[in-house]
């Protein structure tokens, strides 16, 4: 009777299979990239004037959100969530803009940038310490620190203002040599390459996935679960500080009131980018592509003279729709 039992095909290791398994493992991101290509084509079609400079504009406006999405992705992969990212961005951005106004000078600005990044680390460390030590659910902790950071931002800058060093602005505006190479995109790639790639290859990176995937198994495998969770928030704070700096760089000022949609869009992008909210699955590239897609959809609606508010509707519907379909596929698969 054992002969009647079904068997699973054993995966073979041929190159075609390897490509196949790469495609399968990254199907979501690849699909998203394909969608982005279609969307870019459509953008050109909808707005023949959409040229290389527009590409630069898109890249500049996307940068802070993309970094916010990367920050969110790190903590979500580790099984947590950070609702305070937008006010971390507001706070770091305000500190940077205020200091750069008070202490002008291109060289000083380098020191200020480093200081602000350190502050980002501290903010993340506070979030992480609270989550680990109080055992309060991460949503509640980061919801509370959202208020706290926003309060500090208002203390630093009661009203929007400040300044940004020229080199900082120069980093995100315009193209690099050739027009079709937006500096903001290059910066994003460089930052991600410097932060994420070494991280994801390191044992810390593995530990992040491990505690998100199965905390008990991770603990039993000798992963220091609490320390890793703490570090996830620290990294998120660090990247969020970059996002705050990019806000200052692209607007030239600091705005104390956090943009309300940033947190929402960072979570949306993370999820659309193939990161599981349950943790353990995904990377940062998917979320970045998702941010660009979400932004382009809004831009396209503007070009097509659709009320831009439908852009919000579209973003929300895409978010819900894609997830519903994804969840349906998953349910089917687990049932089969």
């Amino acid at each position: 009777m054992s002969a009647t039992t079904a068997t699973i095909e054993q995966p073979r290791g041929g190159p075609a299979d390897r490509i196949g398994s790469f495609a399968r493992d990254n199907a979501w991101t690849l699909g998203l990239l394909g969608f982005l290509a279609v969307l870019l084509g459509f953008t050109k079609f909808a707005n023949p004037n959409y040229g290389l400079d527009s590409l630069q504009g898109t890249a500049t406006s996307v940068l802070p959100l993309a970094l916010a999405a990367v920050a969110q992705a790190v903590v979500v992969i580790s099984g947590g969530i950070d609702l305070s990212i937008s006010s971390q961005m507001a706070l770091t951005s305000c500190i940077a803009a205020t200091l750069m106004k008070g202490y002008p000078g291109e060289g000083v600005a380098v020191g200020i940038v480093i200081l602000v990044l350190l502050i980002g680390v501290v903010l993340g460390a506070v979030n992480g310490a609270l989550v680990v030590l109080t055992k309060v659910p991460d949503i509640v902790v980061t919801l509370s620190t959202f208020f706290i950071w926003a309060g500090f931002a208002l203390l630093v800058r009661p009203a929007p203002g400040g300044a940004a060093a020229d080199w900082l602005k120069g980093l995100v505006v315009g193209g690099l040599g050739i027009d079709w190479l937006p500096k903001a995109a290059i910066l994003l790639i460089v930052l991600v390459a410097l932060i994420w790639i070494p991280l994801s290859r390191s044992r810390l990176g593995l530990s992040l996935y491990a505690i998100g995937s199965n905390p008990l198994a991770a603990f039993r495998s000798g992963v220091a679960v609490n320390r890793t969770k703490f570090l996830a928030y620290v990294i998120t704070g660090f990247v969020a500080a970059f996002a705050g700096l990019s806000l200052t760089a692209s607007t030239g000022i600091g705005t104390p009131v956090p943009e309300p949609t940033y947190v929402l869009i960072s979570i949306a992008a993370v999820v659309l980018g193939g990161v599981s909210l349950a943790g353990g699955i995904g990377g940062v590239f998917g979320p970045i592509v998702a941010v660009v897609v979400l932004q382009l959809i809004r831009d396209d609606m503007t070009f097509m003279h659709v009320d831009p508010n439908y852009g919000l509707v579209a973003q929300g519907l895409i978010l819900i729709g894609v997830l519903m379909v994804g969840s349906l596929i998953q349910q089917r698969r687990s049932r089969a």
Binding site: L206, A210, N214, L216, A217, S221, G222
Partner: peptide, 22 residues
């Protein structure tokens, strides 16, 4: 210790699981 539930991280591949545990 080896438990009834394998202490293997489902979302990592085997090589990564080995690295994780040295």
């Amino acid at each position: 210790s080896v438990y009834q539930e394998p202490a293997v991280i489902p979302d990592l591949d085997i090589r990564e699981n080995l690295r994780l545990t040295h």
